[in-house]
Computed example of a mutant assay.
Amino acid sequence: MDEHRESRPPSVVTEKNVSTVEKLIMQDRRITVKQLAFETKISIGSVETILHDHLNLNKVSARWVPRLLTTDQKQERVKCCKHLLRQEANDAFFFRRIVTMDETWIYQFDPEPKSVSMQWRRPSSLPTKKAKVTQSSGEVMLSCFWDCDGTIMTDYMEKGKTVTGIYYSGLLKKLRSEFVRRRRGKLRSGVLLLAFCMILLLLIKHEKQ
């Protein structure tokens, strides 16, 4: 005669627990699995089952964007883009005449990516350590100008200089020389400097007054 066997313990993955986990996530999208397990008083494995098999959820990192825009800023950009498209309809070479620029501070260090430091190791080996790279006190500002055909000019600000209207004035003179060398004939057909470049011109004009 077979011995008496205990019945299988009831599963904690119930409709109530699924609903509770979903509500907690709706309240805080960044909540961790450990926090969910603590709040619901069920195991981490059961929480993961609910997340993946019942709620079809996966935790992903937020996508990086240059800046978060308000509704008004988005509408203004749409308005600006529509204006540019109308300009292009009347001028087939409109976009080819646009020149823009950007600038960034470059720090004097070359951080090693985490993937480069990966090593093949046995399970019994001690874990390796890697010190966090810190920024050096040295830095230089890079300015880059480009159009639809590619980069026109890059310039590194000399050490000891400050960002002033005089600095930008010299930068635009260098840009003109590069135009003559790299984009022959484009100055005669007309060049359109994007909004940021126009701000530079206003700054130069203000400092000269």
Rank of each mutant, 00 (worst) to 15 (best):
D110P: 10
T100R: 00
Q35R: 07
S61Y: 12
T128I: 09
L202T: 08
Q27L: 14
D155H: 10
V78Y: 06
L36D: 05
R96C: 09
L192E: 00
I25C: 05
E158A: 11
V78F: 07
P111M: 02
R184K: 08
R5E: 11
Y167P: 01
L57Y: 12
R184F: 15
W64E: 11
E39N: 15
T162V: 04
D91I: 03
F109I: 15
N90D: 13
P127C: 06
R67F: 02
A37E: 09
V191D: 00
W105K: 03
S124K: 11
S169T: 07
K173C: 11
K59Y: 09
V163G: 05
Q108H: 14
S137K: 13
M141W: 06
S137Q: 14
S137I: 15
S43Y: 02
E76A: 12
T70R: 03
R29D: 15
L57M: 08
S115P: 10
K23Y: 10
A37W: 04
L51F: 02
M118K: 14
A92C: 13
L203N: 04
E103C: 02
V133C: 09
C148F: 13
L55M: 01
R86E: 15
T164H: 02
R86N: 14
V65Y: 08
K161H: 09
E158M: 08
R30P: 14
V13C: 09
I106F: 08
F179Y: 07
P123Q: 04
M118Q: 12
V13R: 05
M118F: 12
I42H: 04
K132P: 08
V13I: 06
K161P: 06
H83Q: 14
M141V: 03
G165C: 01
S137A: 13
N17Q: 03
W120F: 13
Q87N: 11
R121Y: 12
Y156G: 11
A37F: 06
S11Q: 05
S19G: 14
E207R: 03
V116Y: 13
S143L: 01
A62M: 15
I50V: 06
N17T: 10
F196L: 03
G150K: 00
Q119A: 15
G160Y: 02
P123W: 01
L175G: 00
K82P: 11
T128D: 12
K174N: 07
Q108I: 15
